[in-house]
């Protein structure tokens, strides 16, 4: 479903701020894979997701989505294949527009936007049913401006928007990091449900090792722009936080530095 081959990205090349963010990333996702991604600060997790999303062109390598090489497609064209949820709840929705308008925008992802009316009566009924899945009472507030919603509600709505057109790949970049623990758990639950029901292929970056172990069928760890290990299937099911930390220091030769990951 997704193939990254020797993907490289250097920011600010040739300046004193030069930063090799991706140093040859190789990854192959099968349809239906739900992979969690962990790694310390600056390991290149967000950069990997941004490379897939086409936020900027990569320096070398190939990105292939469902058999199509997308290296040359810019961000808005690649959006046809992708659903994205960001760390900042503000990023995924248009605050000044209504809940139903946001969903209408999302349900036209990858299609030509014409001069037909922006939202149909049939769609409104569909959206109401979809919002019920979230179990947040948003189905009764469809004409409310999204700016009035809480961070958790916005993230849940963004998730719905990201999955409404069944993306080939769902990209989640620490999408629960800005939420309080209870809300984060709720949003994770919704994430899992949407991925399962729509049979999506997903990549989820998280700093929470327990979540990384509990969710998905595969786990990868990144370090200094590389994937340093990749665990799937039965082996992943038996992972523990301690085991992961040990594995990290064995593979990278360093202590695992992120307190955030260990404490949570």
């Amino acid at each position: 479903m997704l193939k990254l081959e020797n993907v490289r990205k250097t920011f600010n090349a040739g300046t004193i701020n030069e930063k090799k963010a991706l140093c040859g990333v190789n990854l192959h996702l099968n349809p239906g894979d739900f992979v969690t991604i962990i790694g310390g600060n600056g390991a290149g997790k967000s950069t990997t997701l941004n490379a897939v999303a086409g936020v900027w062109p990569i320096d070398a390598g190939d990105i292939v989505i469902d058999g199509e090489n997308v290296n040359k497609l810019c961000e808005y064209k690649r959006a046809k294949y992708l659903g994205r949820v960001f760390q900042d709840p503000m990023n995924g929705t248009a605050a000044t527009m209504e809940i139903q308008e946001n969903l209408a925008i999302a349900s036209r992802r990858g299609e030509r936007r014409t001069l037909k009316w922006g939202i149909s009566r049939r769609e409104k009924d569909e959206f109401r049913e979809l919002l019920k899945i979230l179990d947040l009472g948003l189905e009764d507030r469809m004409t409310a401006k999204v700016g009035l919603l809480s961070g958790g509600q916005r993230q849940a709505l963004t998730l719905l928007m990201a999955s409404i057109k069944k993306p080939k790949i769902l990209l989640l970049d620490e999408h629960t990091a800005a939420l309080d623990p209870k809300t984060a758990a709720k949003v994770l639950e919704i994430t899992e449900k949407l991925i399962r029901e729509n049979e999506l292929t997903a990549m989820m970056v998280t700093h929470n090792m327990k979540d990384a172990i509990a969710y998905g069928n595969r786990l990868i760890m990144m370090h200094e722009g590389r994937i340093i290990f990749d665990i799937a299937g039965e082996e992943k099911k038996h992972l523990t936080v301690e085991g992961l930390v040990k594995k990290f220091s064995q593979t990278s030769g360093e202590e695992f530095a992120s307190d955030r990951a260990l404490l949570s």
Binding site: A53, E75, Y76, K77, A79, K80, L82, R84, F86, M90, N91, G92, T93, A94, A95, T96, M97, E101, N102, A104, I105, A106, R108, R109, G110, E111, R113, T114, L115, K116, W117, G118, I119, M161, A162
Partner: peptide, 20 residues
């Protein structure tokens, strides 16, 4: 549809690009 896309562009560039 197009007018809504235009409003979305003004409201949130990141979201608009992510929505194609």
């Amino acid at each position: 549809e197009y007018g809504s896309a235009l409003r979305a562009t003004g409201a949130n560039l990141t979201m608009s690009r992510a929505q194609g």
